[in-house]
Design a protein around this nucleic acid. Structure first.
Lengths: 224, 224
DNA sequence: TGTACATCAGTGAACGCGCGTTCACTGATGTAC
DNA sequence: TGTACATCAGTGAACGCGCGTTCACTGATGTAC
């Protein structure tokens, strides 16, 4: 049906140094990781609609079938990308929290770190959100002690929340994520640019927003 | 190349009453609207990935080429769907606001109405968000007096915010949207189900979250 | 140290699919006279 | 009221595309003896 006569002709050349070793071996060595990294690169440079299995393989310099030796299917690869994201988000939150001067400030810094991560990796963040939406939230990391989720809970208690009031604790924890998520997703809107600049940059803008959070229930800064 | 010999055979039957008239005319009469409605139906029943131009045409009972008489391309149709969403969201917010007992409560009710709309039309809401993200926010409606955006501003002033303090006004308005957006998108997470039920249903849960908003900056309910 | 061989991790061609869009067409409608 | 005709809003077949996945294959690796 198709001409395959001279199909054997291929460019044998070009494929050089992958990252560490010298002469691009037949076996990649760490394709699994490389695919996840390639996925992130595509995500942030071409957007989520460009994130196909084939594109990832292409970006990693490998045939379209190669990923199947490392991931069951496309969604498993995507999950791995999201997973890496959750891991990094947890680390960013830990760093932000550790840098705070006092327990109260720690909460704010957690929020800032969260938003900052999402703003630096918007497409990845969205992928993470979607992955979390479908299955359980934050596949493994939610339950890990070093997850962002755990840090929020700890920071709340350190700031004085009553850990025995389980319902209030949960609600506060969830509210924190809601707030951070909302700010993270809206902070990039183009029509906020003027205000952002007037406030001296995006971080100041984000801090301002996090400070205004609570507007529905008790907009103190405005109404007192 | 392809067999077209008996391609002329088609089912002439079935296509009955569209909604108003009797015998399904050749000309649809209101295909533009019907396509938008079909788009919404697909969105909520099959999810955003199923929302293709062809699927919309199929759902509307029309050939794949028909939509091109009404929309330049796929994205224009999607925009129309999103537009309808923004319109309805504005109306829902107006209703919520009007039902409030006092100016302060109006803000809360706006938040509840927003989240409620998003929860009832999750896929549509997401489409709206994305449309807003790319171009300007809320294509036309943001500038309209009856938009949700406008209602928030008015409600803030009625609740006592100083309309001459432009920066604080803007920040508060944006913060309100951030909060509502965050709660709207997280309220559906499956792991919150137990808490939701314990609180007596989703609306109570949402009100609780909106009340806890402000957690990063001044988590009063917990810490005072 | 050298060789046989199982296993691993790639290749590239092929599949079937649904998509957005275009095209020449045709049936229905509405207006001018 | 009747007819000619332009215009409108459909049809259905076709295009080229990139996708996820499968398949038989092959080169590289590592282990047993």
């Amino acid at each position: 049906m198709r001409e395959t006569g001279n199909a054997a002709i291929q460019a044998p050349a070009a494929k050089v140094a992958p990252a560490t070793a010298g002469a691009r071996p037949y076996h990649h060595g760490d394709l699994s990781r490389a695919l996840v990294a390639a996925g992130r690169r595509i995500l942030e440079s071409e957007g989520p609609s460009a994130l196909s299995l084939r594109a990832v393989a292409r970006e990693a310099g490998v045939s379209p079938a190669a990923p199947y030796h490392h991931f069951k299917d496309k969604s498993e690869l995507l999950d791995a990308v999201a997973e890496e994201g959750w891991h990094e988000l947890g680390a960013a939150i830990a760093t932000g929290r550790a840098a705070a001067a006092n327990p109260r400030a720690a909460l704010t810094e957690i929020g800032v770190a969260y938003v900052s991560f999402a703003r630096k990796n918007p497409a990845l963040y969205r992928l993470m959100y979607h992955a979390a939406c479908d299955r359980e939230m934050m596949p493994d990391h939610a339950k890990t002690q070093d997850s962002g989720w755990g840090h929020v809970a700890e920071a709340l208690v350190e700031a004085g929340a009553d850990p025995t009031n389980e319902r209030e604790m949960q609600l506060a924890q969830i509210a924190a994520w809601c707030n951070a998520h909302g700010v993270a997703e809206m902070a990039g809107f183009k029509e906020f640019e003027p205000l952002k600049e007037a406030m001296g940059g995006e971080e100041a803008f984000v801090r301002g927003l996090l400070n205004h959070v609570g507007i529905f229930a008790r907009p103190r800064a405005l109404l007192d």
